[in-house]
Design a protein around this nucleic acid. Structure first.
Lengths: 232, 232
DNA sequence: CGATTAATTGATACTTCTCAAATCCTGTGG
DNA sequence: CCACAGGATTTGAGAAGTATCAATTAATCG
């Protein structure tokens, strides 16, 4: 996988917080960034650490999670092309609140802290984009809190499946294009692995989804949305 | 309650995102802001609305909550002196994600959207503070997600009581200085009112807290922290 | 002082978790 | 290419945790 050395030629830019950075700003980042790769399963950032820079994901899929009691993972969200990792910690001047692990081979650009701050200072628009981004994520987190607190496991599972479908899209056979173990799904929904398994099979029997091994495809989005009580 | 017309003389400033705004910036806000009051129980912002400005709380206490299925409140967090309401929505250009209701009589300054943006544009430092603030809250939200997903009700209750104690402090008798109904506590913990009542009485019998009517005082913080699995 | 709302307690039902056992996959080395 | 080891998935049974409903008592407000 080749990542352009010049950010201005990177097609991921359009989806990223960098999308309306000046040419000078992009050139500046280009000079200071480094390209890095992570293998499937490799830890990119460790909860509690103090990062010295941010990663901009070029391609690949990454999970962000905190470790709860007894070391159980709670997946907070996913990160993919164009997304940033580590900016929250750097900006709030706090240790990293969530670990990041690659779900598949991932390529990214590493931008050192100092350069990141320089770009923020020199580009009010970029700074505003980051602000917009973090505020958006804050809203998403609020929704997740309400779901966890008020919905039952089946409703939350339906919701997560819909979210996964929008985040990762579908492959040619209509399956959600992400490879997660049942345990990882459980760690998102906030339940036991066995419960997820039982409910997935229930949803299958009821005709809302179909599945083949790990792969899951949504069959009846409308009903799933209704079940998850998403009225948007 | 008198709020200074000049923000530079407002003693709430030190705790707020405005804390290192330039004198000119503060003067600018002073000109454009309006003072408003809310009675206990009054709704300040309504979920789904598009706010035309932000409120800076001068004194009083406010709950932020979303309405889940069947109209049940989920309290996301509390807002008090020096905190802002509505900035998330304005910055992310999305409808308000959480309603705000005054828990006691509250005085605030209203800053129209346009002025707010002008101050952001003219004061990179303020913009950076907001960024810092939203990133911090994002971390807090992540913690809440993990708690809800992994801890049982008693552990979450212990956690919430500790949070309330730090957020609102104690009155002269050591009781947490906030007046919440058992239902509101339940709406934070994400459980039924009766469960909260039972567990509060359990914690009392075990000597971790004492209570008098609605009022609750922490007696054994160390054990509560252990129970809530907070190791910070 | 009523009238209303909030808090408490008990009994029961339901949801979800945990543990254990069986089956299915997947990648690896022969 | 096959067999096998180790992990992942599935299923069942029983236990634990919570919610719900109903009835009672306490607190609060005009």
């Amino acid at each position: 996988m080749d990542i352009p050395h010049q950010c201005q030629f990177c097609n991921r830019q359009a989806n990223s917080a960098f999308h309306d950075l000046s040419t000078e700003g992009l050139a500046e980042i280009s000079q200071l960034k480094t390209c890095v790769s992570f293998r499937k399963g490799q830890v990119i950032m460790h909860e509690g650490a103090r990062p010295q820079g941010v990663y901009c994901i070029h391609n690949g899929k990454v999970k962000l999670y905190t470790l709860g009691t007894e070391g159980k993972e709670q997946i907070i969200r996913f990160v993919t092309s164009g997304d940033l990792i580590g900016y929250r910690s750097i900006l709030s001047e706090e240790p990293i609140s969530a670990s990041a692990t690659a779900l598949e081979d991932t390529h990214a650009c590493y931008i050192p802290k100092s350069s990141f701050f320089k770009v923020i200072q020199d580009n009010p628009k970029f700074s505003l984009n980051l602000l917009k981004l973090s505020c958006h994520e804050l809203g998403e987190a609020g929704k997740m809190i309400t779901s966890l607190a008020q919905k039952n496991v089946k409703e939350r599972l339906a919701e997560i499946l819909l979210i996964l479908n929008t985040t990762f899209g579908e492959d040619e056979d209509g399956y959600i294009d992400i490879n997660l173990t049942r345990e990882e799904i459980a760690n998102m929904v906030g339940t036991a692995t066995e419960s997820v398994i039982r409910l997935i099979s229930e949803l299958r029997k009821e005709g809302y989804i179909r599945s083949k091994g790990k792969r899951i495809a949504l069959e009846d989005r409308v009903s799933l949305r209704q079940m998850a009580a998403i009225y948007e």
